[in-house]
């Protein structure tokens, strides 16, 4: 698979390390009343779709940026690549 890095252009996916579903960006708040339940779901449960999947890849053999890759799990087609930093900021995260 070729991942088109937003800054570095097309890179071999073997340069990257895979973490998992991009929902891992949205860490729950520790002081919520239902934090226990939210952390359980955040840490252990996955949508695991057969189709379009947003996921986190780390460019370990490159610039060490985290990317959010939108990929079809049924065909391995890569549909979109964004910097995870931008995705996190758009979702309201401060850093």
């Amino acid at each position: 698979m070729i991942i088109s890095h937003p800054l570095l252009g097309p890179r071999d996916s073997a340069e990257f390390v895979y973490l998992g579903d991009a929902s891992l960006i949205g860490r729950p708040h520790a002081f919520d009343d239902d934090a226990m339940e939210k952390f359980y779901e955040y840490q252990f449960l996955r949508d695991n779709p057969d189709g379009v999947h947003r996921e986190l890849w780390y460019h370990e053999q490159g610039d060490r940026s985290w990317l959010v890759v939108t990929r079809d799990t049924a065909t391995h087609d890569i549909l979109n690549v964004e910097l995870a930093r931008d995705v996190a900021r758009q979702s309201g995260r401060g850093r």
Binding site: G20, F44, L45, R46, D47, N48, P49, D50, T73
Partner: peptide, 18 residues
């Protein structure tokens, strides 16, 4: 292998990735 796909029909999220 397809647990995620089939159990989603029953509205379940699983501690599994395919």
């Amino acid at each position: 292998g397809s647990s995620g796909r089939v159990m989603s029909l029953a509205g379940m999220r699983l501690p599994i990735e395919s």
